[in-house]
């Protein structure tokens, strides 16, 4: 994720987006960090407009877009609150609005919902899907939760144990909206989990010298 976002340099190989090399960070690729990295000294609204301000957008444009994206994540009422006053799920949505407000081509999300309770996470799945449909952005989403990957993704890439390469890719063409508990989601998860287990065994063998029984 950090390589795609241009925050770190790769040691070998190239990172290409639409046939263009990635050279350092750019607002066409916005990463939502696992720990969010919202700015506590700014209000929710100021956080959302931060990217636009750096770009030098006019005050008026910033105002309209900030309102628009806060509405999109259902936080319009909290424009003037500070980050520490919000719950975990709300902070997550602020981070999402802040990332979307720079209108990136690619949105990178690094295990964004891992720290949330199940209810909030379900809700945010619905919202993310809705926002994705409305904005049509490409989203790269890292997760350890196979069902979450199938719930949200069109394409799921399974990464292998060290060295981390793409082990296999799965096209998910289940009808939307999907739900975590759906039978076909669970069915698709089964297939990926079997492949995943192989990787987990490999990692256990490396670390403890013997495999776990499946």
């Amino acid at each position: 994720m950090h390589l795609i976002a241009g925050l770190h340099r790769q040691t070998s190989g190239d990172v290409l987006i639409d046939n263009e090399y990635v050279q350092g960070p750019g607002t066409d690729r916005i990463l939502i960090f696992q720990e969010l990295g919202l700015f506590p000294w700014l209000t929710v609204g100021e956080n959302v407009e931060f990217g636009m301000r750096m770009k030098g957008a006019s005050k008026q444009e910033r105002g309209t877009k900030t309102r628009e994206y806060l509405r999109l994540v259902h936080l319009a009422k909290f424009k003037d609150s500070y980050v520490h006053q919000l719950s975990g799920g709300m902070r997550q949505r602020v981070a999402l609005a802040r990332a979307l407000a720079t209108e990136p081509d690619v949105l990178l999300m690094d295990e964004p919902f891992a720290a949330l309770d199940a209810q909030t996470r379900d809700l945010l799945h619905d919202e993310l899907e809705r926002i994705w449909t409305e904005t049509g952005r490409t989203i790269i989403f890292v997760t350890h939760n196979v069902r979450e990957a199938i719930r949200l993704g069109d394409r799921v890439a399974l990464l292998s144990f060290r060295p981390g390469t793409v082990k296999r890719e799965y096209m998910i063409d289940l009808p939307r909206p999907r739900h975590l508990e759906d039978a076909n989601v669970a069915g698709a998860a089964r297939e990926i989990l079997d492949d995943l287990r192989e990787e987990i065994n490999k990692s256990l063998e490396k670390e403890y010298g013997h495999g776990a029984r499946a």
């Binding site: 925050l7 960070p25 960090f33 990295g37 990217g51 750096m54």
Partner: peptide, 9 residues
């Protein structure tokens, strides 16, 4: 990191 990510230089 977040600042650089959002375009601050």
């Amino acid at each position: 990191m977040a600042g650089r990510n959002l375009g601050a230089r």
